Simulated assay, not measured.
Amino acid sequence: MQQFGLIVSHVFLLSLTPWVGGQSRHSYELRVRYSTDWGDWGHADMCPEGFYASGFSIKVERKQGNGDDTALNGVRLYCVNSNNRGGPHTTVESSVGRWGEWTPVKWCSSGYLASFMLRVEPSQGSGDDTSVNNIKFICSGSGAQLEGDGMEWGSWGTWSNKCPKSAICGLKTRVEAPQGDGDDTALNDVEFFCCK
């Protein structure tokens, strides 16, 4: 396993690329570099056109005692229609690890998810690695913070930049495949897309 480095968070300008079954008008990618780099990036999954992420849930494996801990295994976004917040919602998720259970949904009371932060445990050498343990979001408008029901190992990094005049509308996750008799970490990193 490789060591990881800490880098200041950034917002990246992306080309306007059409997405099959999702939004074609995303223009920014939110990243934080307080993460680990084991595993592979999954597919990008986008909210439908006109929908934005107003809630989230995470898949978490609880403490395994003497077993192999993986902590955070997945992130699911709950997308609502900007013209009818009380109407039906849809969910999007990228790659997800095999362990744990989905937590209850946390919702922005107003606005949408606009910035995030990760809680990460660095490489433990010969110890049990868990990588990403939890996630927080800031809601646009109210500025309320929503913290996931993840694990407590590691420390919080820095906030990503906020979606500029937009909101989170999709994601892509980096997940390490099961290692057999090796040390499993599951989710290692996540990127979010912003739509106007």
Rank of each mutant, 00 (worst) to 15 (best):
R31Y: 04
L30P: 00
D128Y: 14
L171F: 07
L187D: 11
R119E: 15
S126N: 09
G50Y: 02
K136H: 11
W159F: 10
G170F: 15
C194S: 03
G125N: 01
D149R: 09
S160C: 01
I135G: 01
S155E: 14
N83K: 12
P164W: 11
W99G: 15
M46S: 14
P178E: 11
C47V: 07
V175I: 15
D40C: 04
T70H: 13
A144C: 12
S15K: 14
I135F: 07
H26Y: 05
G87F: 07
Y78M: 08
F51T: 01
H10I: 08
I135D: 00
P18I: 06
N81A: 06
D181F: 10
G74Q: 14
C108P: 10
K162S: 03
S110P: 09
S82T: 10
A53Y: 07
P48T: 10
I58N: 08
T158A: 14
W38E: 09
T103H: 07
C139N: 01
C139S: 06
L146N: 05
N133D: 12
F4I: 02
R62G: 12
V11Y: 09
V132E: 13
S9V: 02
W102H: 13
L187I: 13
C139L: 08
F116Y: 08
Q2L: 11
I7K: 01
Q179M: 12
D37V: 05
L187Q: 11
D189C: 06
S140R: 02
Y112H: 00
G127F: 14
R98A: 15
L187A: 08
R31W: 05
A144H: 15
V105D: 00
F193H: 15
Y112I: 00
W19T: 11
Q3I: 11
T158V: 10
S160G: 05
Y34H: 14
V60A: 03
L118C: 02
G154A: 15
Q145E: 12
P164M: 04
C47F: 02
H89K: 06
W153L: 13
G182Y: 12
I58F: 10
A71E: 05
W153V: 08
I168E: 07
Q2K: 01
D128N: 13
G39C: 07
C169Y: 10
S155M: 15
W159E: 04
K59W: 10
S115R: 02
E61G: 12
G42V: 03
Q3W: 09
R174G: 03
N84S: 12
Q2D: 05
S166M: 01
N133P: 14
R174K: 14
S115W: 00
K162D: 03
M46R: 02
R25F: 10
D184R: 05
S24R: 08
L171G: 04
S27D: 07
E121W: 04
Q124N: 03
G100E: 10
H26L: 09
S123T: 10
S155L: 15
H10F: 08
M46K: 06
M46V: 11
E191W: 04
G97N: 13
L171R: 02
T17A: 07
S57L: 12
